[in-house]
Design a protein around this nucleic acid. Structure first.
Lengths: 340, 340
DNA sequence: ACTGTTTTGAGGCACGTTCCTCATTTGCGG
DNA sequence: CCGCAAATGAGGAACGTGCCTCAAAACAGT
C-alpha cells in the first residue's frame, strides 16, 4: 500500500493539519517543520492520491473550445475526438463547451471570444488565425484569470499559456524532404493553401522553403496559391498549373481543400506522375493514399490533440506543471501502408 | 455540476442502494426497476466519477513488466518511459515492478514468469519471443486470474488479453514502401535482424516481402541475415554484403544492432548511396538520421507504449473496456526533419 | 391468510484528501 | 516573567462512490 498523509504525519512527528499545510504550501509553518515533513515525504516516497485530492477539492473545470466552422473535415474529426475524450476519464470533473465560428470572418472569432463569460469559465482553447484583435481578446481572457491555449495554429504573440499542436515549420520541412526524395529528378512544385493568414500555413511554407533551398536545388517552388476557402478557386488554380506547367513534379497542399485539388489534378490527367503531399488525415486524404493519388499525408493525431488540450488546460487552471513527454504532438507521416 | 448517484435515486424514485445495485450489475433488482434507473441515468446524463469510485473501491493494481535485458537502447528508453509514467497520474493507485531477463536465453523468460507470485500480482506485461514454454507460462498466469498483455512483440497463440504495440506486418510494409520510393532505380535489398525468433521480426519481414513483391518488381530482397545479438557478426555480415554486392541499394534493419550495422556500412564506403531503414528511435538512429546515414526510422512512441500498457492492464484487471482510439499504437515514420 | 422468497429502503463506514474551526503550545521581544 | 503572535494539534465535515447489514415491503405459491 502506498503511504498516506497519515503516515507522513506519523513519520515526521507532526499533526495531519501541518502535513496538509506543507503539502499545499499554505503559510503558517516554520522552515524547520517544513523540512521535516518534506524529508518524511521523500523517505516514504509519498505521492499525493490525485483522485482523492480532486474529490476532496471538489474541483470542476469549466472549459470552452473555440473552433472554426465550415466544411472542414479536420475540424469535424477534431470535434468528434473532443466529444469522445469528454466521455472518458480524461475529461473527468470537467465540462466542455464547443463554440464554432465562421471560418472566413476574422471578426467572428473575436466576437465569440468576447461573448465568453470569464466568470463562468476556467479555461479556453482557441483555434484561429492570429490577428491583433484576437491577441487583444486573448489578453483580456488572461487578465480575467482564465487559462488559454492555442490549438493547432499557434498565437505566438498572444499571452496564451501554451500551444497544443505540431511544430509547423518542421512539418513544412518534412513535406519538403518527402517531396525531394520522392521526386529525385527535380522540377517545379506547386504550393497551395486555403489561406496564408493562418500561422500554420505560414510556418509550413517557411519550413518547406528552408529544406528545398538547402537540400533540393533541383526543385523550384512556385509562389503559394491561396484559395480563400473557395473550392472552385482551388480547383481552377490547380488545374491551370497542371495544364500549363510541363515541368511540374509535385504539389504541396498546406491547408484544407484537398477535394477540389485532387479533382483538378485528376481532370488534368497528370495525377499519377505528380508527388502530392497534403495535411491531415481525413476520409478524402485517406482515400487518396489508398488509391496512390497522394504520396504522403502529414498529420497530427486529433485524439491526442483533444486529450492533450484538455490535460494542458486543466494543468494551467491549477498552475500545475504538465508532463511534457505526453503533450508533445508528433508530426505523423502517413503513407498508404501505415494508415491508422 | 454533474449529477451524482443521489440525483439518480431521486429521479428514479428509488433508494441509493438500488441505484448502486443497478450501476454495479448486482443481483436482486427487478427488470422494471433496472429500466427505471437506467432511464434516469440516461435522462440526467450521469457518468460515474471514476476518481471517487476508485477511491471508494480502494482498488490497487499490482503490476509487473517482464522485459529483456541487454545493451538494447530501445528497452532502456522503454523502461525509462515506464518509470516516468509511474510518477504521473497514469499509474495512479498502481505499483509497478520491472523484471529483466537475459535477452538471449529463452528459458530465462519462462523462469522469470514462473517466479512471479500470482497471489501478489494483478497483471503482467510481457515482452518476449513466443515459444511454447512462454505460451504455457502465460496460460498458467491467466489461470491464476492475472491480466496479461503482450508488449511490442505479440504472443498471438498465447491466451494474452491484448497486444500493446504496432502492427508489425504493416510496419514491414511501410519500410518496403519507403525503400521502393527512395530507391526507384531498383536493386538488391539486404534485410538484417538480431533474431527471427521474435514475432516482430517475423511479421516485419512478411510485410516487407508483400509490398516489394507486388509494388516494386525492381527490388530483389535478399534472405534475412541474423546476428543472434552478436555485434561482431552483424558487422561482418553487413560489411560482406556491402563489399560483394554491387547492386545493393538498400538495407532494412528489422531489429536492434544498428550500431554495428552502420559501422560496417561506413567502413564499406557505400553508406551515402544506400537507403538504410531501421526501427526504433534511439540515440544511435537519431544521430544516423541527422547525419543522413539513415533515410528513415520506423518507430513506436515508447511513452505511449508504456502508458498504454498500464491503462490496458488496469482495464483488463477490472474486465473493463478499453478506449480503443487511445490505445492504438501508431507506426511512426521518423525522418531527419520530423525528429521528436 | 400463510409461509417463504425476492426486492427494496435506510443507514453507516470506508477510501485519501481538502479545508475548516478552535484550542493549545511554542517562540520571541520587552 | 508577561504578553502576543506565530505555529501547531485535534478534530470534523465534506467530496462521490462502493459495499455492507438489517429491516421492511412486495410478491409468489399454497
Amino acid at each position: 500500500m502506498r503511504p498516506t498523509v497519515h503516515d507522513i504525519a506519523k513519520e515526521a512527528g507532526v499533526s495531519l493539519a501541518t502535513v496538509d499545510r506543507v503539502l499545499n504550501a499554505r503559510p503558517g509553518v516554520r522552515e524547520k517543520t517544513i523540512a521535516r515533513v518534506q524529508e518524511a515525504v521523500a523517505r516514504l516516497g509519498y505521492v499525493r492520491d490525485a483522485a482523492a485530492a480532486n474529490l476532496a477539492r471538489g474541483r470542476f473545470y469549466r472549459l470552452a473550445f473555440v473552433l472554426p466552422e465550415g466544411p472542414n473535415q479536420f475540424v469535424e474529426t477534431l470535434r468528434a475526438a473532443l466529444l469522445e475524450a469528454c466521455a472518458t476519464q480524461v475529461a473527468d470533473r470537467a465540462s466542455v463547451k464547443v463554440v464554432t465560428t465562421p471560418a472566413q470572418d476574422p471578426h467572428a472569432v473575436v466576437r465569440a471570444l468576447r461573448a465568453l463569460n470569464p466568470r463562468r469559465l476556467d479555461g479556453v482553447a482557441i483555434m484561429a488565425p492570429e490577428t491583433p484583435q484576437v491577441r487583444d481578446a486573448v489578453a483580456r481572457l488572461k487578465e480575467e484569470g482564465l487559462a488559454v491555449v492555442a490549438l493547432v495554429s499557434d498565437l505566438p504573440n498572444a499571452p496564451r499559456d501554451r500551444f497544443v499542436g505540431i511544430d509547423n515549420v518542421a512539418a513544412g520541412r518534412t513535406a519538403a524532404l518527402l517531396t525531394g526524395r520522392f521526386a529525385p529528378q527535380g522540377g517545379e512544385v506547386l504550393v497551395v493553401t486555403n489561406s496564408l493568414r493562418s500561422r500554420d500555413s505560414l510556418d509550413r511554407r517557411l519550413g518547406f522553403d528552408q529544406v528545398t533551398a538547402t537540400d533540393f536545388p533541383k526543385l523550384s517552388v512556385l509562389p503559394t496559391a491561396e484559395s480563400y476557402d473557395d473550392p472552385a478557386r482551388m480547383e481552377a488554380v490547380a488545374f491551370e498549373a497542371a495544364m500549363s506547367r510541363p515541368k511540374l513534379v509535385g504539389v504541396y497542399s498546406m491547408g484544407s481543400g484537398n477535394t477540389p485539388l485532387l479533382r483538378a489534378l485528376r481532370r488534368s490527367g497528370r495525377l499519377d506522375e505528380l508527388v502530392v503531399i497534403g495535411h491531415e488525415l481525413t476520409p478524402v486524404t485517406r482515400r487518396a493514399l489508398i488509391e496512390n493519388e497522394m504520396a504522403a499525408v502529414i498529420s497530427q493525431d486529433v485524439g491526442h490533440l483533444a486529450r492533450s488540450a484538455l490535460r494542458v488546460l486543466r494543468a494551467a487552471c491549477d498552475a500545475a506543471p504538465v508532463f511534457e513527454a505526453q503533450e508533445r504532438i508528433r508530426i505523423e507521416i502517413v503513407l498508404r501502408e501505415n494508415l491508422p
